[in-house]
Design a protein around this nucleic acid. Structure first.
Length: 278
DNA sequence: TATATCTCCTGCGGGC
DNA sequence: TGCCCGCAGGAGATAT
């Protein structure tokens, strides 16, 4: 499942191969993949033709290609989206295909169709220039201008479980279910604890753990449990071997040996150590 | 206004 | 073998 580290790996791959190139062809194979582009597939296709890619950027789980038209092509991978370069061995889940002036083929493949492309304007927000659909997101822990202390103040006002807040992209972006569980495990905090009942040092440790676990995952090329997350070359990351909590139900906690427990939370699974996450 | 829940979607695995 | 059901979960829409 692509979260911040996986999206960043993909962005780096796209940055390496696409910047400076001009889009010469676009074909939308599945309308749902462009459902957030209000003007529809034909408009997206027409406006992308002839546009030159001048850069790439990312906030949280969103990445975008900057265009010479002063617009951005926003890409969200959803749960299973892939941005693949080159020939496609299997076109079953191909949603959008594009071609560049040097012949490079870009395929947006997305089995579960939660992801998509959207062409939007840019706006200035809090010292950053962002695509409109990304403007409401908080900075992520890997952002050089991420301000942990202000996030802590937000969390201290939330009468809600701390894991729920970690997953709220307007509080802190980039964290999904996997890295939320991993950060909570590293910080020794149960996700069901109310955010406003946690001390500032505990919240500080939690945000530091989130940044740490995502940096570790980035260094490993991202997390992969199956073929749903791959980089632009179709390769999986290796960080799943390093997960301490997520997906380890009944396996011994690497800190205290207590079996990791799984519980339903927000209609999804949470993994935690019942002994050292109190 | 703040917080919680529902919904979208596809493929896989388990149970019958 | 075939069918049904639950599960995976990001984020916008809707409900409380």
């Amino acid at each position: 499942m692509p979260e911040l580290p996986e999206v960043e790996v993909v962005r780096r791959g796209l940055n390496e191969h696409l910047v400076g190139r001009t889009i010469t062809g676009v074909r939308v194979h599945h309308p749902r993949a462009v459902r957030r582009h209000d003007a529809g597939p034909a408009d997206l296709t027409a406006r992308l033709l002839g546009a030159r890619i001048t850069g790439t950027d990312r906030r949280g789980k969103y990445l975008w290609l900057l265009l010479n038209t002063d617009e951005a092509l926003v890409v969200h991978l959803g749960m299973s989206g892939q941005m693949l370069l080159g020939e496609l061995p299997d076109t079953r889940h191909l949603r959008i295909a594009a071609v560049l002036d040097d012949g490079t083929k870009i395929s947006f493949v997305d089995q579960r169709t939660f992801g998509g492309w959207q062409l939007t304007d840019l706006v200035a927000v809090d010292g950053s220039v962002l695509p409109v659909p990304v403007a409401h997101l908080a900075r992520d822990p890997l952002d050089p201008r991420f301000d942990a202390e202000s996030v802590i103040e937000v969390l201290r006002r939330k009468r809600s479980e701390v894991k729920r807040q970690l997953l709220d992209q307007t509080v802190v972006s980039g964290i999904g279910n996997i890295y939320a569980d991993e950060a909570l495990w590293r910080a020794g905090i149960r996700g069901t604890r109310m955010a406003d009942r946690l001390s500032r040092p505990r919240l500080r440790a939690l945000l530091a753990a989130a940044a740490e676990v995502m940096n570790d995952a980035l260094a490993a090329g991202g997390t992969s449990f199956d073929s749903l997350y791959v980089n632009v070359n179709g390769e999986s990351g290796y960080f799943s071997r390093s997960l301490d909590a997520y997906g380890r139900e009944d396996e011994p906690c690497r800190r205290c040996g207590t079996p990791i427990r799984r519980a339903k939370f927000m209609n999804r699974s949470s993994y935690f150590c019942p002994n050292c996450q109190r």
